[in-house]
Nucleic acid binder design. Sequence first.
DNA 1: ATCCTGAGCG
DNA 2: CGCTCGGGAT
Length: 233
Amino acid sequence: MSRILQKLMAMYEAMRKHFGHRAWWPSQDGADTPEGKLEICLGAILTQNTSWRNVEAALDNLRAAGRLSLTDIDAMPPEQLAELIRPAGYFNVKARRLKDFAAAVRAAAGDDVAGFLDRPAETLREELLAIRGVGLETADSMILYAAGKPSFVVDAYTFRILVRHGLIGFDDDYASVKALFESSLPDDVALWNDFHAQLVETGKRFCKKRRPQCDGCPLEPFEHDPEAGMEYL
DNA sequence: ATCCTGAGCG
DNA sequence: CGCTCGGGAT
């Protein structure tokens, strides 16, 4: 139990030493403003199975068109919204998901995104998961990065890195991996924020799907097997 | 050709 | 469980 904590923190320190502080959406970027919170939520949906670079292009299109608001997204025809978010891929599906999200938030809190997010993490999580298009990872991303509340985000990189380092089995589900982090790590939003960002950076750069590049990886000194669960990850 | 900070449907 | 959605970067 405490051995897991030691190992996780050692891995975190190694990643952070290599990449520097990677915490996404610092307050300088306006993450604490209502507009910033909305943008993070929309981005969380747009980035599903999609690189962030392409999400930025979609958000830029929405901003340039002056439609980066809950009311506009709620009112816009799905075809028109799809055209604006085209660079993010899956644009027909995601247009519907953005509209479902906007409608759900408006129904629950009017146009007050911050108000919608301002409730206990557990309650907010249930509320988010009830929205079609918001799954486990997307909900946790919104809670951690937009609401600024503790909810550890587990993604494909997290699975891959932990499996290859023997900390979980490839058959472990989302909830158990999430619980591993949340029960081991100190309850610290800033830490969970940066930890997830470090895992993503490590996964993108080194712990790749097909051809893991262990050379130079900050986690290379830790016991690992780059072939572990290859056919499932 | 492969992958990207997935999720819903049949 | 397997399939689908998709443009953009490498």
